[in-house]
Amino acid sequence: MQWYWIPEYAPRFIDGVIVTLQLLGISVVLGMLLAIPIGLVQVTGPRWLAIPARMFCTLIRGTPLLIQLWLLYYGLGSLFPMIPEIRESFLWPILRDAFPYAVLAFTLSVAGYEGEVMRGAFRGVPKGELEAARAFGMGRFTLLRRIWLPRALQNVLPTLAGEFVLTLKSTPLAATITVFDVYGVGSIVRQETYRVYEPLLFVAAIYVCLTAVIVVFFRWLERRVPRPA
């Protein structure tokens, strides 16, 4: 085992960690913003919203993330240059870069998986609490904001922690579309130093640390949220 390359590549690994965290952070936040309505309409929404939401979750959960990523990046990405309006628009520099495609793919993935989790979470809130809120004269949105959503999130916080760890562990897939996250930097080191195991072990150790950070953060969050007995 030889580790002489670590100091040389340390700055690039730091950049890689930042890219990984950005990818994870943005897609988790945007994904959850989508997952909440996707879960909600499946519980109370009209059929014309519930059915597409259900189909979206099935589609995302039933196909490999790698294929989704490639479909967006290579598939959509190869269609855009053929439309002159897009080539000349201000969006072009963004659409040429791989990172936004990765963010889109991971956001949709989080939305699909967590939409399913939120569906169960909304359903799991006792009816009596919602009826009590209605009896207090709360409107639909106040009820959602003050009772239904907080109670649903509270119940699935441990599940979400596990799900976000899974999302973190899938972020290396972005390296297959030329995003240089931690894993991508590790691949560069492997190519340049001809070392096979050490860079992979080092990358694995970084992911274990990042996983630990997520787990500890959610434990802290769970303690802050008051739990009914």
Partner: peptide, 24 residues
Amino acid sequence: AAGATRAYFMFFAVAAGIYLALTL
């Protein structure tokens, strides 16, 4: 297949469909 034919979108969509069928 996608690389050889340049029909990226179609092939990845078809693959997604096959995986989905397997899941269902």
